[in-house]
Design a protein around this nucleic acid. Structure first.
Lengths: 213, 213
DNA sequence: CGATAGGGCTAGGGTTGC
DNA sequence: TGCAACCCTAGCCCTATC
């Protein structure tokens, strides 16, 4: 089974904001293209953890067990929908959001156990921390803009970020500092980004200017 | 100002198919992030050529004057958009494609005159034209795959491409034709590449097959 | 030394999560 | 919606090898 990316529109429609979902599997949930009435109850085991109750933490555990050092929780998907985020369009009106979510998670677990599941192709959908940004800036300061592989080797040896990620992040930082990069128009940085950028904006602009010159 | 590569999307989105654009500058065109109402009329001079009418040929002339033996017309860009290729998203609905293009060219000229313009640091970061591809294929047909220095001497005497570039481009062409080269997986060629490849795919595959045999 | 094969790297546009 | 993350191709560069 090949897991596809979640359609964009699903985010808009989804109303379930819960971080975790502790409800047990309700096999009365009939979902399009996936689990049905006859799927029955599933209670898989992973190591010492009995997943009688399925929540996002369980999925995270599975992710680690699958060899993903960096928690790819956001990557865990089942049949086009994301674990932990029930999709309205796959949910019966009579089914609660939580129940739908739980059934998704169970479906994912079943297919994971059977080996009939993959992780998405995206390795790392996590936001940069201020530590990482600082490391990147130190790297750029030492090695210059463009030497991403070198910076990766010296400053990000133990980080999951690849050289390409560093390049992308530097571009994003430049944009967040009000610089126009490529064909994209100037962007308005989001609050979280601005918070991380505090004290770095001048430095970034200087380094970008020096590189362009 | 740092000149960057032409966005591939221009090939798809751009609706202006004219090879040249002879319309004179219309200063009523108001563009985001660049020329405005108060920019007024510009009529720069380059040598004997009076650029009262700005078209792509004029830019080509300037390129030569700047020391580029081979016309880097595709490289000429002004503030994120390319001369000669007005981007729809930068154009007012009430402005024609030609008028937008002309104003871009004028903007570029102004900045070129003021010295506020550079070409990229890489010697040759331009996409291959169909003429170049054709020359390469003729060369490979005559001299065979691998004799890049010979092909360079006979077919690319006046081109800025080096023998190594020819080798790289041949590899790229093979990949774009669906052939696997080296360790890299097959690639999905981009629209612009496919456009140039039209009518050459069979020829390339045949020559590659013959060389492998 | 010159030339080539092959892998590595980056710029920049594209796509997608959220 | 639009920012911030990742993805992908085309092109250039580096190194080993002869």
């Amino acid at each position: 089974m090949r897991i596809r990316r979640r359609p964009r529109s699903d985010f808009v429609q989804n109303t379930c904001k819960e971080e975790t979902c502790s409800q047990t599997y309700d096999n009365s949930v009939d979902m399009e293209g996936g689990l049905g009435q006859d799927d029955g109850m599933v209670t898989p085991l992973f190591g010492d953890v009995k997943l009688g109750r399925v929540d996002r933490r369980s999925l995270q555990y599975i992710s680690f067990a699958a060899g993903y050092e960096y928690p790819p929780l956001e990557m865990v998907r089942f049949r086009g929908s994301w674990g932990g985020c029930g999709q309205r369009k796959y949910r019966k009106k009579s089914t609660s959001c939580k129940a739908a979510e739980t059934s998704y998670l169970f479906g994912f677990l079943k297919h994971f156990v059977s080996g009939d599941v993959n992780f998405g192709t995206r390795k790392n959908y996590s936001h940069w921390t201020s530590d990482e940004v600082e490391a990147l800036l130190n790297g750029v300061e030492e090695h210059g803009v463009g030497n991403w592989a070198l910076i990766k080797r010296t400053y990000f040896k133990t980080f999951p970020r690849t050289a390409e990620h560093l390049k992308d992040k530097w571009r994003g930082l430049c944009r967040a500092c009000g610089l126009q990069v490529g064909s994209k128009q100037k962007v308005k940085a989001q609050p979280a980004t601005l918070e991380i950028l505090k004290g770095f904006t001048y430095k970034i602009r200087e380094m970008a200017r020096k590189h362009d010159a």
